[in-house]
Structure formats: C-alpha cells, structure tokens
C-alpha cells in the first residue's frame, strides 16, 4: 500500500504539555482517511501537523517524521508556502475571502503563478468550481461577493479554492458541522468524487459521516492513536475496547 503521507513516531508538545504520543499513521493515496475521537484527543492537532499549520503556535515542539511522497515536510529546506499548495485545507466554518466568487478561486493560482494568461486562469476557476459541484450555481454571477452565497455553497467554494492549486492532499477539519443535511450530503458526495484525484483526510465528530465517506478510520484518544484500520472493519469489529466504547456511545 502506497502512503501519500506517512507519519512516523510523531510526538507533539505545546510547551510542557504533550498533545500527541508517538503516533504512526499512513494515509493511503486516493483514499479518504477519517480521524475520530473525543474533543481534545489530538485529532485536530494531528491534522494540523500535516501541512505545518501548527508552525505559528508559540512553544510548539515536534519530534518524528511527516513524509509527503517520501519527503519530510519538516525538513529545513521545505518552503512552507509551497508545501501548502500541495496540502490544502478546508475548515469547519466556511471562510471565503471578502472578495468575488471568481477571486476566491483565482487567489491560489495567482500567488503560486500557476497560469500563463487570463484565459488559462478562467479555465482553472471554471474547472475548480465544476469539480466542487458549484459551477452551475454560480457561473452567471462570478463577480458577486462570495459572502452572499449560502453556507453550503460557501463551503464548496472553499473546497474549489483548495483544489484550484491542484494539491496532492486536502485536509478537512469538520467541514460539514455548520451545514444542514442537504448541504452536508453534497459535500460528502463531493469528497467521494475528489478522492479519485486527491488524498483526503477529514476530522469529524459525526461518526456516521466517517463511516459513510472514509475508507480508512483512525481513532485517537488522549493523544494516542488507539486504532486505525479499514473503515468497514473498524465500525463492525473494532479491536480495541476504547474504540468499541467510543463508537457505540458507551464512552464515559
């Protein structure tokens, strides 16, 4: 199994406090991996290590390796801006820039200089919005403010923005928690389509969602990776009692 991202013996400290304990987890290419676990278990910390979102946190200390296509992203030679064009992120609350729909998607390709001329940029914008399942809804109003879109549309716009720079991996931190069931279903369908081209990692508190959309699931507890495996297996026959307790709602 080829891992797009291979995390090896990751220890993460916020000052004195250790947030992750010796976590090793491989994220298979062209699959969605779901990270589940109670609040404060370390799953979001883990996610943020995958594109160095934690770099800005003061007193942060990290040991271990995070290999993207075999290359350690914490190597001093790595350019963080470049890294984030390879590992995109979608957040819990849709956070479009206060600009037009077009500009939101065009922003990434612009700063990474991914196009030759205006028509090439137009193409990137159209392709990204189409992939995010938003094109038909917004094609006649691309210059309209992105903030006027509905919550679900805004989140799909953020996904379009993330995929516009053609990343290898997309990280999602609770991408549906602010959305209604219909908008959620659209994002879930989108995640399933995107996985052909991208490797996805999603943090979710919605266990049914993890079961529906992921192929691999990792359960975190108190900073430890308790159990990771094929999603169908983890939800029918978990090996660890803590996993069993958490997913069946017996966690105390």
């Amino acid at each position: 199994m080829a891992f797009k991202i291979d995390v090896q013996n990751l220890n993460l400290f916020y000052g004195e406090k250790q947030a992750l304990f010796n976590v090793s987890l491989g994220l298979p290419a062209s699959q969605t991996t779901a990270l589940i676990g109670p609040s404060g278990c370390g799953k979001s910390s883990f996610l943020r290590c995958l594109n160095r979102m934690n770099d800005v946190v003061p007193n942060l200390h990290l040991e271990g390796k995070v290999l993207l296509d075999g290359k350690d992203i914490y190597d001093p030679s790595v350019d963080v801006v470049d890294l984030r064009s390879h590992v995109g992120m979608v957040f819990q609350k849709p956070n479009p820039f206060p600009r037009s729909i077009y500009e939101n998607v065009a922003y990434g390709p612009r700063i990474h200089r991914l196009f030759k001329d205006k028509s090439a940029l137009d193409q990137i914008v159209e392709k990204s919005l189409t992939r995010a399942g938003l094109w038909d809804e917004v094609k006649d109003r691309l210059q309209q403010a992105a903030t006027r879109l509905s919550g679900g549309q805004q989140q799909r716009l953020c996904i379009a923005r993330a995929i516009a720079v053609n990343p290898k991996v997309i990280l999602m931190d609770e991408p549906c928690s602010a959305l209604d069931p219909i908008a959620t279903a659209k994002i879930e369908e989108l995640i399933d389509e995107l996985r052909e081209k991208f490797t996805l990692v999603i943090v979710t508190h919605n266990l049914q969602q993890a079961a529906r959309i992921s192929q691999k699931t990792a359960f975190f507890h108190s900073g430890y990776l308790v159990e990771a495996g094929e999603t169908g297996e983890l939800f029918t026959t978990p090996k660890d009692e803590r996993t069993q307790g958490y997913i069946t709602g017996r966690y105390g």
Binding site: L207, Q208, A211, F235, T237, P238, T243, Q244, I247
Partner: peptide
C-alpha cells in the same frame, strides 16, 4: 440509533 460494532452485530 444507527448501531455499530457489537451493538450492530
């Protein structure tokens, strides 16, 4: 309840 694991079984 959407049971999983031992509950589902």
């Amino acid at each position: 309840r959407q049971p999983v694991a031992s509950d589902l079984r």
